[in-house]
């Protein structure tokens, strides 16, 4: 009798929790793969295609599906490190096949030479080039990701990739040289007479 009560009680419990779990799995279903979003958030969003995918999101999907995470030259080692931490994979050196890590650059159109062919506008993955047919084009510097994709289609080679210059806003002090080094800044009040 006791056994029976116990069995019935356990069965009832199992049924209740089973129903609860079943309900929850339907109700709280997660659409898409959240890992893809997390990977996409780490990728630098240059949309340059150097990884062999047509944009950062497709590469994020590919990484989630098992592709190597060391094919992003604009992100460099930092991105690889962050991806390794996120995915619990080993750190890999940057795959040289896809390019080398470089300083940040933005496209610059030598406007005198531009013939207004709109080819670069079509190539830009983030719509950062403005202009119209037969009219000079120019790059919205703040929106340019430095992906290089506009350089190749230009028939007159008037696009340069120039390194991003440091501004008063982006400048900050260097990390001090550390133990044994003489720092730039020093508060010397105590040495005063």
């Amino acid at each position: 009798m006791t056994i029976l009560t116990a069995i019935i009680a356990l069965l009832a419990l199992a049924a209740v929790f089973g129903a609860l779990l079943g309900y929850a799995s339907e109700k709280l279903k997660v659409e898409g793969d959240p890992v893809v979003d997390q990977i996409d958030a780490i990728l630098p969003q240059t949309q340059c295609g150097q990884c062999g995918h047509p944009g950062c999101r497709p590469y994020a999907e590919a990484i989630a599906a098992g592709e190597e995470h060391n094919k992003c030259p604009p992100g460099g080692e930092q991105t690889i490190q962050e991806l390794s931490d996120l995915l619990g994979r080993d750190f890999l050196p940057l795959d040289e096949e896809h390019g080398e890590e470089d300083v940040k650059r933005v496209a610059y159109i030598r406007e005198d030479e531009c013939i207004g062919c709109t080819k670069c506008i079509q190539a830009c993955p983030v719509d950062a080039i403005i202009g119209a047919a037969q009219k000079m084009h120019t790059v919205i510097e703040d929106e340019c990701t430095g992906c290089d994709l506009c350089v190749e289609p230009c028939p007159v080679d008037c696009i340069d990739m120039v390194p991003v210059e440091e501004t008063l806003e982006s400048w900050h002090r260097e990390r001090p040289p550390g133990v044994g080094g003489r720092p730039e800044t020093y508060i010397p009040v105590e040495n005063l007479a």
């Binding site: 996409d40 944009g55 999101r57 983030v126």
Partner: peptide, 21 residues
């Protein structure tokens, strides 16, 4: 601060890319 600016820029680039697609 620079990293934050970069993240903000990446977010904008993502939005622009998606809008374009």
């Amino acid at each position: 601060r620079n990293q934050e600016a970069e993240t903000a820029k990446a977010d904008r680039a993502r939005q622009r890319f998606e809008a374009r697609q």
